[in-house]
Computed example of a mutant assay.
Amino acid sequence: MKFKMILSSVKPDITDNIVDSAKAAGATGATIIPARGTGIREAKTFFGLTLEAQTDIIMFLVEEHLVDKILAAIKEAGQFHKPGTGIAFVLPVEQVAGLESQLDEFKKRVKETYF
């Protein structure tokens, strides 16, 4: 079974919506990491202090065959067509440990999808 990692950087106020949409599209869970960041639109300053935008990094470890559907759901839920709303990208996963308790469910879902 092959997996991919979807990483998404979004504003904290839409994190729950992103996670809910991804789960509806087939993701089984998510890890959310609070972060700070800056992008093409430079951080604002206030009395000489830089105010960095708060962001959440959402990580989804998903089965390879679900990536396109989940990524599309994330993009739509996050309204990524609007400037400054967020990004998402996919990384390859070479090996996975710790999913043994979920393997039966993964195998069942693959059979339902393809057979």
Rank of each mutant, 00 (worst) to 15 (best):
M1N: 02
K4R: 14
K4Y: 10
M5P: 05
S8F: 07
S9Q: 06
S9T: 01
V10D: 01
K11C: 06
P12I: 06
T15Y: 06
T15L: 04
D16N: 15
I18M: 01
I18V: 08
I18L: 03
V19Q: 06
V19E: 08
V19T: 06
V19M: 08
V19N: 05
V19R: 00
S21D: 00
K23R: 15
A25R: 10
T28N: 03
A30E: 05
A30I: 06
I32T: 13
I33C: 08
P34G: 00
A35G: 08
G37A: 04
G37T: 06
G37K: 12
T38K: 02
T38Y: 05
G39H: 12
G39N: 11
I40V: 01
R41P: 00
A43G: 03
T45N: 01
F47P: 03
F47L: 07
T50E: 04
T50G: 01
L51C: 11
E52N: 11
A53N: 01
Q54W: 04
Q54I: 05
T55V: 04
D56N: 13
I57E: 03
I57S: 01
M59P: 00
F60D: 04
L61E: 02
V67S: 09
D68A: 14
I70T: 12
I70V: 09
L71Y: 00
A72N: 13
A73C: 07
I74C: 15
K75W: 11
E76Y: 02
A77E: 10
A77H: 12
G78L: 02
F80E: 08
H81Q: 05
H81E: 04
G84C: 10
G84D: 10
G84A: 12
T85F: 07
T85L: 11
G86K: 02
G86R: 11
I87S: 05
A88P: 11
F89L: 08
F89K: 12
L91G: 02
P92Y: 15
E94N: 13
Q95A: 02
V96T: 07
V96H: 05
V96Y: 04
A97P: 03
G98P: 08
L99V: 07
E100F: 03
L103K: 13
L103N: 10
E105Q: 13
E105L: 12
F106Y: 15
F106N: 02
R109Q: 07
R109D: 15
K111L: 14
E112I: 08
